Amino acid sequence: METVASGRFYDTHLPYVKLSGTPLEIGLGHGTFAKAQIVKAIEVYSTLYKESKNVSWDEARRRAAEYLPLLEKHPDILDELRGIAQGSGTDLLDIVALNVRSEITMVDISDGCTSLAQVESSTGDVYVGQNWDWIPEVDAATLWIELEQVGKPKLLFLAEAGIIGKYGFNSEGLAIMLNAISSNEVSYDKLPIHFTLRKCLEQESVEKTVDYLESNGCASCANLLMGDVNSYCSVEVSPRGIAIIKPDDDTGVVSHTNHLLDETLSKEFPCDTPILSSFARYDRIKELNVGSEGGFKSFRSRLGDIANAPKSICKYPEEGVTGLAKCCTLYTIIVNTKTKEANFSHGRPHDNPKEYRVSFS
């Protein structure tokens, strides 16, 4: 089956859109194609902001507006956002508020998402993958986006409708995953994480991505776990600088969850919220990495682990909770950077859901 069947990803409910042209044209195409999903995303995040941070949508728009002076210095991003707003019949600040959701909701608490990268010794192929753990309602507002831009690599990523950068890979073989990290601090003179992630996905290699991050930083804390055909690492970003996390010497794996590993950054942005499962998941993935090989099957096995539930790597929904506490595993994406293809599934990997191949069309 082709990846795109009448604008859908295989036989799933997820839309799939191919976009090309100028930033404004790409935005218009995005907004027009995903209008219903964008409206749903605004509804979902309006509720989440209120439940988790007691922030109304009007307040979210006000905070989003604080990034407009910075975005004026990035006309490619701003034009794409304007196109999305125009195509979907929404306001520019609605679209900006979606894209800065990490800076609004994840400032003093974050949870979910376990990522890893590893080389397969028999082939030399580098694999990069993760579980996307997030609130279940987002599933109705998520889509696959394939982008072709002049002078830049092609991009393939999974994101909420209206958001312009997320988990994915490019035609040069660079793959990047995202772990949210609490920070208690945001910057308004650096690009928010989802814009930063888009800029990173447009780089040609891990080396150039690290160079970009060292030069530009990020508005909030996060971890970008990345790999290309030759190398892989994690890069912890923050408003005060970045830190590179290299693969472990004993296993050759680099893993990450939702707390800072670098000693300097972790002191500046302490993560001591007691409900976090991040520490338990990190310890568990480190255990599972011992003796494991790189590859789709091995990654899926580790990402499907349910030990220490409900603080497990593969997380199931919990009843009677609200806001960010509803976080559970929604999708699993694993990329082979050499073949430039991904293995993707919807749902909890422990349940062995149907697997799909993702590649450039």
Rank of each mutant, 00 (worst) to 15 (best):
N308M: 08
E207C: 02
F279T: 12
L191W: 09
L48Q: 02
D248I: 07
G129D: 02
P310H: 14
I42E: 06
S220G: 05
D11A: 10
M177P: 04
L213F: 09
A222L: 04
K166H: 15
L330Q: 14
F9E: 14
V229S: 15
S361H: 14
S359F: 09
A5R: 15
L98S: 05
S122V: 06
A65N: 12
K190G: 05
V126E: 04
E214A: 04
D211F: 01
L92M: 10
E263G: 02
R348I: 14
E103D: 11
E51K: 06
Q118C: 15
I176F: 11
I163N: 03
L81V: 11
G89T: 10
S20F: 01
V206E: 00
L174C: 08
S231D: 15
G227E: 03
Q37S: 09
H350E: 15
C271F: 00
I42D: 05
G304F: 07
I135T: 13
T273Y: 03
A159H: 07
D94W: 13
L191M: 09
E355D: 05
G320I: 03
H350I: 13
K199P: 03
I135K: 00
Q203R: 15
R82D: 03
P23L: 04
E66K: 10
P23F: 05
P274R: 00
P270E: 04
L158R: 12
L156K: 15
L71T: 07
I275A: 05
D139P: 01
K315W: 06
D228C: 12
Y232P: 12
D108Y: 11
R62H: 13
S183M: 01
V235E: 00
V96C: 10
S255W: 11
L260R: 00
P75E: 02
A219T: 05
T329E: 07
L116N: 02
K338Q: 13
L81F: 09
L68H: 11
H256M: 02
D76F: 13
T337I: 09
G151L: 13
T273C: 02
S52W: 02
C113D: 02
L265T: 05
A141I: 03
A280G: 06
A41F: 07
R348W: 12
A65T: 12
V138R: 10
Y282F: 13
D111S: 11
S56D: 10
P353N: 01
A325F: 04
Y232A: 06
L260Q: 01
G112W: 00
E51D: 10
H256W: 04
C314F: 12
K190P: 04
L265F: 00
R8Q: 10
S234M: 09
Y232W: 11
R63H: 13
T257G: 01
T32E: 11
I245T: 07
